[in-house]
């Protein structure tokens, strides 16, 4: 379909709308607090990196960044590892209760986090896991495991079943077939599933905040504590906020063609 010559104006305006608040955050991170609170300047008067230096030299900021990265990484590994065999089962076989199980997984992806924060505290305390990285990583499996299963199932169903059968005839056992032949075939699917697990664990706030309160505090909890206190240090908050955009901006390039597929749980 030929688009009109001026079609580009619509996405251009939209992108401008998307970038304006982000620009303001980044601009703020280069300003001094005096400039932020007393003068209204579209461009920072001088580009000073003091706010970033403050963030990078403060052990507390470094810790909260590391905490977030650790539980997000753990969650991604756990989610994809357990989802791989399950997705294979759903894509290749019929078994008792498969449809119900698949639906039940989805309900967990859709469950509001606010419902689970109440019992999570008791549950993880009972196992002595409260305020640990692994607690947040496990709790985020609530929505990331179903997501990974659905996405991987979508990709696996695109691989013809004849490949499995040929491999078994050639004398491959299931584990050797799965690791040596099947996983390379769905490598892009594994990448996309890992990306989405990473992403949803990274953006989540409520559960992480309720399970990791002090020693493994996530970055967003610290931002929250500082942004709603009196005498807010806006410059440092803006600098730390800007830094949280970077992981997403980096990985997005690799999955740009799969973003829609991932959000549609592998079914576009």
């Amino acid at each position: 379909m030929k688009q009109s010559r001026f079609a580009w104006i619509v996405p251009a305006i939209y992108i401008l709308f998307l970038l304006t608040p982000i620009y303001w955050l980044v601009a703020m991170s280069f300003k001094t607090n005096v400039e932020i609170t007393t003068r209204f300047t579209l461009l920072p008067e001088t580009f000073n990196f003091d706010n970033y230096i403050k963030v990078f030299t403060d052990q507390k900021w470094r810790d909260v960044f590391a905490n977030s990265i650790i539980y997000v990484g753990l969650n991604t590994i756990i989610s994809v590892a357990v989802a791989l065999p399950a997705a294979y089962a759903f894509s290749r076989y019929k078994f008792f209760g498969d449809k119900h199980l698949f639906f039940w997984l989805l309900t967990n992806r859709m469950a509001p986090a606010a419902v689970f924060t109440l019992p999570f505290f008791q549950l993880y305390s009972a196992f002595g896991l409260f305020d640990t990285h692994i607690a947040v990583a496990l709790a985020h499996c609530l929505f990331n495991v179903p997501l990974a299963v659905w996405i991987l199932e979508g990709f696996m169903s695109g691989v013809p079943r004849e490949i499995d059968e040929t491999a078994y005839i050639d004398g491959h056992s299931f584990p050797s077939f799965f690791v040596k032949i099947f996983m390379p075939l769905i490598a892009s699917g594994i990448g996309v599933a890992a990306f989405f697990c990473f992403m949803f664990s990274w953006v989540e706030y409520l559960i992480a905040d309720s399970l990791a309160r002090s020693t493994v505090m996530p970055i967003t909890t610290r931002l929250q504590a500082l942004s709603q206190a009196s005498g807010t240090d806006w410059g440092v908050l803006a600098a730390a906020g800007t830094l949280t955009l970077i992981p997403g901006a980096i990985v997005i390039w690799f999955v740009r063609n799969y973003i829609a597929k991932g959000f549609a749980l592998g079914r576009v």
């Binding site: 996405p11 304006t20 955050l25 992403m199 953006v203 706030y205 942004s227 997403g248 997005i252 740009r256």
Partner: peptide, 23 residues
């Protein structure tokens, strides 16, 4: 288009709120 449009989707939700508070 794809990369810039996807950018807001990858910002931690709390930071989204914070950006709009500051904005």
């Amino acid at each position: 288009c794809l990369v810039v449009m996807a950018l807001p989707l990858l910002i931690p939700w709390y930071v989204v709120g914070m950006i709009w508070q500051m904005f």
